[in-house]
């Protein structure tokens, strides 16, 4: 093997190590007592404890944060699916002279700085009395989920072979049943990727949740960041445990999303 290749492999291995090690280290620290974390030299051998994780799971603020996150993100994704998928299908299959403009409009929603949306919405929600409630958060997140799901679902529907749908029309299916019974199932895998992506996006969202909630609608990222604001008095193990809890749900989608990535690029080839 030439030295160049060897160096290349070493760099790759190092990058792979850097990709996961910080997270693994955090998970390890979640199992440590404070004495084992606050050490000059990192400690790999220690007596593990479940106290941190137990503390996190037992805390009311964390549990309600988790509940708020699940409800807000779940509802927003559901709205995104119900409104976004049909619209994406229509844009993909019945293109008219506005199709380009619609696509650009949906993308341009992503250019909006989050602060520019959050500040006026806070004032609006305050005025209508919905500030610091889950419905306000859900409606705000829907803007995000609808646009992202639409943006990703348009190419997914376009990649469904036209002939299948034509055949269904010949068999006497109406336009709506072609959507329900042909396009949706055939594109299901890519669509699942798009939906998973939108979920990860709102689950990870921080700025809007921070500005639109003060006590009753705090999501998990806000609760986790508040734990850290108590300074170094909070045992680090507990902080690490809360980071791990916050990171787990998006990682559950690792398989779906990497499959989605593969299918997107396989289509490009053909």
């Amino acid at each position: 093997m030439r030295p160049g290749r060897l160096i290349g492999k070493a760099i790759l291995a190092l990058a792979g190590f850097l990709a996961v090690f910080p997270l693994l280290w955090t998970a390890l620290n979640a199992l440590k007592n404070n004495v084992d974390i606050i050490t000059r030299a990192p400690r790999l051998v220690f007596t593990p404890t479940l106290a941190n994780i137990g503390y996190i799971i037992g805390r009311d603020s964390v549990l309600t944060g988790l509940y708020h996150s699940v409800v807000a993100c779940g509802s927003a994704v559901l709205i995104g699916v119900v409104l976004g998928l049909p619209a994406a299908y229509a844009v993909a299959r019945y293109p008219n002279r506005w199709a380009g403009d619609i696509q650009f409009f949906v993308l341009s929603l992503r250019f909006l700085p989050p602060v520019a949306v959050a500040i006026p919405l806070m004032v609006i929600w305050l005025q209508v009395g919905l500030y610091d409630t889950l419905p306000a958060l859900i409606i705000t997140y829907s803007l995000l989920t609808i646009s992202v799901i639409m943006w990703l679902a348009i190419p997914a529907f376009q990649s469904v072979p036209n002939e299948i749908e034509e055949a269904a029309f010949v068999d006497g299916y109406g336009a709506y049943s072609v959507f329900w019974r042909i396009a949706l199932p055939v594109a299901a895998r890519s669509l699942a990727g798009a939906v998973a992506f939108s979920f990860v996006l709102v689950w990870n969202e921080f700025l809007i949740a921070l500005m639109l909630s003060s006590s009753n609608a705090k999501t998990l990222p806000i609760v986790a960041s508040e734990l850290s604001q108590q300074g170094m008095n909070v045992p680090w193990g507990i902080l690490n445990a809360s980071v791990v809890l916050l990171s787990l749900p998006p990682l559950l989608f690792l398989g779906v999303l990497s499959g989605f990535l593969n299918s997107v690029f396989r289509q490009k080839k053909t």
Binding site: A19, V20, L23, V200, W203, N204, F206, P221, A224, S225, V243, L246, S247, P250, L251, F253, L254, L257, S258, L261
Partner: peptide
């Protein structure tokens, strides 16, 4: 892909 899936806060 793992790092990008993490919440930015994490």
């Amino acid at each position: 892909i793992i790092p990008v899936l993490l919440p930015r806060v994490s």
